[in-house]
Design a protein around this nucleic acid. Sequence first.
RNA 1: GGGCCCGUAGCUUAGCCAGGACAAAGCACCGGCCUUCUAAGCCGGGGAUCGCGGGUUCGAAUCCCGCCGGGUCCGCCA
Length: 580
Amino acid sequence: MFLRLRQEADAALREALDGSGLAADLRREELPENLLLEESEHADISSSIAFFLASRLKASPKDIASRLVTHAADAVPEGGLISEVRAVGPYINFHASELFFQETLRRIREEGCDFGGLGLKGRVILEHTSANPDGPLHVGHLRNAIIGDVLARVLRKAGYEVETQYYVNDMGRQIAVAVLGAERFGLDASKKGDHAVVEAYVRASRELDTDESLRREAEALMRRYEEGDPEAVEKYRRVVEKCLSGVKETLERLDIKHDRFVWESEFVRSGDVRRVLEALRERGEVVEEGGALVLKLKCSEKDLVLQRGDGTSLYSTRDIAYHIWKSKLCDRMIDVLGKDHELVSKQLAEALALLGVPPPDVVIFEFVSLPTGSMSTRAGKFVAVDELLDKVEEAALQEVEKRRPDMSEEQRRRVARVVGVGAVRYDIAKVSPEKPMVFDFEQALDIEKRGAPFIQYAHARASSILRMAAESGYVRRSDGDFSLPDFDATLLSTESERTLIRELSKLDYVVEKVVRELKPHHLAKYGRVVAETFNRFYRDCPVLNAEPPLRNARLNLVYCTKVVLKETLRLLGIEAPEEM
RNA sequence: GGGCCCGUAGCUUAGCCAGGACAAAGCACCGGCCUUCUAAGCCGGGGAUCGCGGGUUCGAAUCCCGCCGGGUCCGCCA
């Protein structure tokens, strides 16, 4: 809804720019695309475009603002979402009309969880997590998984048809080592699949450092797997699937599900990799260096090795084949990758360009390290997501036991699980992807009050009010949802109420921002702000004890808040408990 | 050595892309608020040379250059 307000402000401002002749000397594209229209604490929406024009027109921003405002005020349609345009010094402030507040609540009531969508069209394939199947997910993979999962949810919200994919790197050297380890030392059947595999992998890795024959064995195994030797394929399949089943179980705990798992080896077996090589030889400059095939790249300062000297394929070439395949199935590809893949993804884009395939959008996130340094699956130096979740849920359970002795054991466990997973997801989602993170166990277990639980708590409070209202017969309950009577939105006139409605209206604005920047942390912040605003309303405005017409209006506002909080949490992959 | 990213209160972060209304929050610390809808809440207080140094500008946390610190990548690993 906020986007509609911005559209109206934008239209009025553009008319004012034309009408005043102030932008006459400027070409359209010289103006900032959004006309510097942003949310503001001084108005419902505000533009600082006068500053921008001031330097070009050599006039004072204050004068420009007041000239623009006289035109903008005329341009604002009667009966629209804007009631007033005012110049405050150099700023142009737009104030929302009564209709804006009414419409926001009406649409939330009408659209429910669809509120805040953008109606975009198109098919997206989003690849995320894609941890090597040589061990359990650790907290570094967790960042990838959460960024990817939230983006998938938000892109769907925006209207895209999204398929999430997990690219299974089953052809790497480390998988051969894991398979070898499994063969030599067996897999501990008492352990979860991924944990059993990593045990064998770490042990084999260690031996590999000293045992030359094991190294040769691994290379031979890789070759046989690449050739499709049935025995090797079967060995691999067993280990990789064992590991993946454990990974999937972990992802399920986090409420993350991939639509498709794509095995890297498929592209070798299908002949796609061979065809990529042929095409690149034709369209690009491929040279032989010491038996290996190398693609010369112009933009990237590093050339790309396509094939080993012994004729076996390499990750990059298989990745090119994977992306060509994906590109045929969708309109847009998005990859969530760690910072270490940045150069590779640039090389991939350049290789794809040679073949006339549009590159994927790449979301790069910085590493999660431990206080003792970076993580390594191979060295067995990592914090597993399973362990983190176990401990956080345990900490959450202690909290719930302290606060809610009245709840049943089963209820407390449920709340602890929802709060624990939510806390983990929120703590990662709230940080901008390009920020390096250092994982600290103590900090992770200290469930931050302003994180997920804060938002969940606000939702529980709202739910509680509605539940009691239903018990008193003020609202009707119908299959889990509430049906509320019509109301007069003009009664919601206090600052707390207005501010809350304004925040609720911004869901589409935030969704748009996340989609545009491919950064989930804006949504995390939004959830916190809505919860904060609701808590202030909760303090200032009694609901159940208000006079009936006002009570009714406030119940509607509480309902709308619950809808927006629940939807925001859902997009973050966090459950919204009815009570906690 | 070169490329990219990060460096904002004791700690964790937002703001940086599109320079402007007082540098914004949380944790921790200090003080206040449960006879009215869950105190995982609310209100107030102290706490910041926005890594350092230059430059551009009427104006820089934000743009440009240099430096320092941390991370990461730099052909037959993935």
